[in-house]
Write a protein that binds this DNA or RNA. Structure first.
Lengths: 182, 182
DNA sequence: GGTTGCAATGCAACTAGTTGCATAGTACGG
DNA sequence: CCGTACTATGCAACTAGTTGCATTGCAACC
């Protein structure tokens, strides 16, 4: 039930509708935890009946009404309680690694193509994180206390994408050494 | 249905019982795709009725009988077909990153403890991969063709764990700079 | 002689997440 | 005026994975 906690964090940062949350989970926090709007509405509904969040229905002109959710006192407690107990170390799960192991039984060229796609994705993501870091945290040595978490998360993203990129480069060097990598 | 493909790869490398597979998914291939024995038996059953694997029941003395599974022709085709089509790039999903973002709303000391646990886990995993690489592939420049995939997977593991370790170190430097890191 | 552990298989109930569909009004481009 | 896109919410059916339990027999340890 980790989505619950991701929602708690997101709502702690700022109250929002399910729709807003869905957009945040497409960007920002969503770089580390994806969720569809269906799943968000479902969990949000459960959280409301649990009492960790509460909503206020806001009528809008020319738009559907919306339900703005915020944390309740019990939600804030739940969030604090979650941070204070250890999160089990998640093991990585990479379909891509499985596929690499399938090299002797499959189509090497297709796998190389796959690596190239993946390499570009890592590059794009890395560029995004790097720019975000430069834009929002131009002086990482003088961070406001409330920004430390976000900065560290960005740093994690950067390190992980760099590792992914380096992996792709090693693979390409091994499997397609003659071709121009770009 | 990625577990299916992981099982196909594992059985392509060597025929096995469900029990054997469960052990492999605790080590080896399991470093990149975990699965419980329950899940394995379930999927194996479905794969048998799909005709991608077939089993032979082997009686044993003083032990329960066992079902040794192997790939069928259709299983080999399915595996090759899977390698030849692109795997969607999986987005990472890190409860830990979410937790970091919860820093302003939670218990900083507990989070630091969590980072230490995580750091040790990355260190252990890195040591395991490094040793495996040294043991099984002492001469990475002269790999047999069938070993290339396994070698690249190990390299990926090493790069990812190094990135995880570096992340933990950055976090600790930021959040607990005075304390001895070891 | 009892407990623990290994080999070997599996069912049942549950939780989490995905995919597909539905609705409804507004705004904007062609 | 027609189609597309955005705001906003949600249900239903399905797939994947987790958790808990059950069985059988042997070997080894204390």
């Amino acid at each position: 039930m980790a989505l619950q906690h991701a929602i708690l964090v997101s709502l702690a940062e700022r109250s929002a509708t399910g729709y807003d949350l869905a957009r945040r989970f497409d960007a920002s926090i969503g770089h580390f935890w994806k969720a569809s709007h269906q799943q968000i509405y479902k969990v949000l509904g459960r959280m409301e009946s649990d009492g960790t969040v509460a909503c206020e229905v806001v009528a809008q002109e020319g738009r559907p009404h919306k339900k703005v959710y915020g944390l309740t006192e019990s939600g804030r407690e739940e969030l604090a309680a979650w941070t204070s107990k250890a999160t089990p170390v998640e093991h990585l799960r990479s379909e891509f690694a499985v596929k690499l192991r399938a090299l002797p039984f499959g189509d090497g060229d297709a796998i190389v193509d796959d690596v190239r796609v993946r390499r570009r994705a890592h590059q794009a993501q890395l560029a995004y994180y790097t720019e975000s870091a430069a834009t929002y945290f131009p002086r990482p040595d003088e961070l406001a206390p409330e920004d430390v978490g976000r900065w560290l998360v960005l740093r994690g993203g950067i390190l992980i994408e760099q590792a992914g990129l380096a992996w792709c480069d090693e693979i390409l060097q091994r499997l397609a050494p003659d071709e121009d990598e770009r």
